[in-house]
Design a protein around this nucleic acid. Structure first.
Lengths: 330, 330
DNA sequence: ATATTTTTTGCTACCGGTAGCAAACGTGCA
DNA sequence: TGCACGTTTGCTACCGGTAGCAAAAAATAT
């Protein structure tokens, strides 16, 4: 059965279609009598306005494209939950776009643009800045934002957790606990801008103690990749030459690294090797891991993103301060 | 700057707007010459077709609403990754809808319907069947599907993992390992249809050994809720009277239960208490948990769902066989 | 060269709403 | 009773495409 349109309801109620529209427009000029008549007819025909047609006419879809590429990170899920809930509370709907080998940023952005989304959020996705600057997609297209990641791109504000402050806090804590031989595990190496944490961490130790950071990198941001990177390092370096603390770019890597250190090399954490993560993903709190990590202020970040989308706040890069969560692993 | 329309490109290229449209319609009747002319003009004006207008005219949005309510379950993330990737491979886009206190199924379904989505997928969400049957939303609205959960609802096919087979396999395994005093931890208790696993498990033990299942239930489907439920049980029941194996309705609950059993009650898993989960979420594979669990055939399920959405397969309830993953915990 | 067929192009009508103007209506007041 | 005024209703034009028919142009046959 075909859906009823305003025109159908109008016939049924014996009025014009514009009167029907008015009955469904809050604050429109219409008498109680005709409104009741229309609503009753609408009920009978099971009519509800077609938002597609409305979007076309008003030039606003109330849809926001959210691009995600890192589904291996358990931290994404609660973050995504908050983001979608907050968007929905503002009457916005989430178009979730999975960025992968078969569907890259350019595909995604062009498609979202053609669908007339109100905004595009790059949610922690890994991309080379040139990709966005080359394709001048800005031209009258939807505004773009980078969430939970840095961005140096002109006209694309970033909403993120202040990496400088975060690393300083973590570094200070590790220094106080007496760690002296730091290591850092990064995820996918290819991305210039994604490496803020590594750079800051390296700088910290150089300045504080004059020591060089031992760097390793995982293929991807996942526990398996973290496990493999840790395995490579630990099997290559003799116990006495090893680092005493490993900071991982995110918790997923840290879980993998900790698993390998404990079960494959018999190391005690933190006594033989301390481990620090980043994100405070759910398993970090479990006694099985007890991971010392850094929690991003996701509520603030989500709020800020939405304020920018709705133009309630200036569209410019902002950084929020997170919080060090000290547990057993360091 | 306003976006260019087909009309603008037509002026620029010196043709009619229908010729422009044809240049962007694969297989349309148009000479190479005018196509080239149009594409060049389009490039100059940065034109790309407005999919909103197309959707309105063709009565098809290529959008699929995916409703999710259980963001505490880490298993959701990789599943969602597959689902979105597969939808995108078919040219469909995912509208991710977060079901919670402030935004229930009726809201979500009505909204998705108004946005003219091509299909609605209830992805493992908890709802009372009446909710869907009362509101006769089917009337010309988009087809609905239940994914990764049972459904008895007329006209709403379910794509799920065969609970009977799954529970039989798990039960058989536990029986062989010599467990004799089974317990079951369910998530949110309110849902009649969601309790298939519990019912089958109960039935299994009754039939096999004539023993009664010890039942407990968590507030929600999360590690914290699982931890609390386990804590309640273990602190209430003396060691000698306790169950020897606990099957949890999903892995999230199992992680919480295992954490509490080990770290708060000093129990060895599986010696003092064996634990079984369901889903094979990522942490289950970690040596920190080594959880025996049951893996749903997510690839098959996703494929089946998409085949139904695209009407490449009959729209009827299907069950797939999963696989028992035996690890250390049972 | 003309007639016929095929391909290409342009056209009207339509998808289901919105914006804002103009006519119709009802009411209060002289 | 007539006029001014505010409210309600209906109207045209539009958002940016699609469908399918008719006219024009190009290709082929006679």
């Amino acid at each position: 059965m075909k859906r009823a349109t305003a025109q159908n309801v109008a016939m049924e109620a014996g009025v014009s279609k514009w009167t029907v529209i008015r009955a469904f427009t809050p604050g429109a000029s219409i008498t109680e009598a005709s409104k009741a008549k229309v609503l009753e007819a609408a009920e009978r025909l099971n009519y509800r306005p077609n938002l597609l047609a409305r979007s076309l006419a008003t030039n606003s879809t109330h849809q926001v494209a959210v691009l995600v590429d890192d589904f291996a990170n358990p931290h994404k899920l609660p973050f995504l939950e908050k983001l979608t809930a907050s968007l929905q509370a503002e009457g916005l709907v989430t178009m979730l776009i999975n960025i992968n080998q078969h569907y890259n940023h350019v595909h995604a952005i062009l498609n979202a643009d053609q669908r007339q989304v109100d905004a595009i959020v790059l949610f922690g996705t890994a991309f080379r800045d040139e990709m966005l600057t080359d394709h001048k997609l800005g031209r009258g297209g939807p505004p773009m934002f980078v969430l939970a990641r840095d961005s140096q791109i002109e006209g694309v504000p970033a909403i993120s957790c202040d990496a400088v402050v975060a690393i300083a806090e973590i570094g200070k804590h590790l220094l106080e606990r007496g760690y002296r031989r730091p290591g850092f595990m990064a995820g996918a190496r290819t991305l210039s801008t994604a490496l803020g944490r590594r750079r800051n961490f390296k700088e910290f130790w150089r300045t504080a103690l004059g020591v060089e950071l031992v760097e390793m990198s995982a293929e991807r941001y996942s526990a398996e990749a973290g496990a493999q990177a840790a395995r490579d390092y630990l099997s290559k370096v003799a116990p006495d030459d090893r680092i005493d603390v490993l900071m991982c770019e995110n918790d997923a890597l840290a879980f993998g690294a900790m698993d390998v250190a404990r079960s494959e090399f018999g190391l005690r954490v933190p006594d033989d090797l301390a481990i620090v993560g980043f994100d405070n993903a759910a398993p970090a709190a479990s006694p099985a891991y007890g991971l010392t990590t850094y929690e991003q202020p996701t509520d603030q970040m989500v709020k800020a993103a939405i304020d920018m989308i709705l133009e309630r706040a200036p569209r410019e890069t902002v950084n929020f301060k997170g919080e060090l969560v000290v547990r057993d692993s360091a």
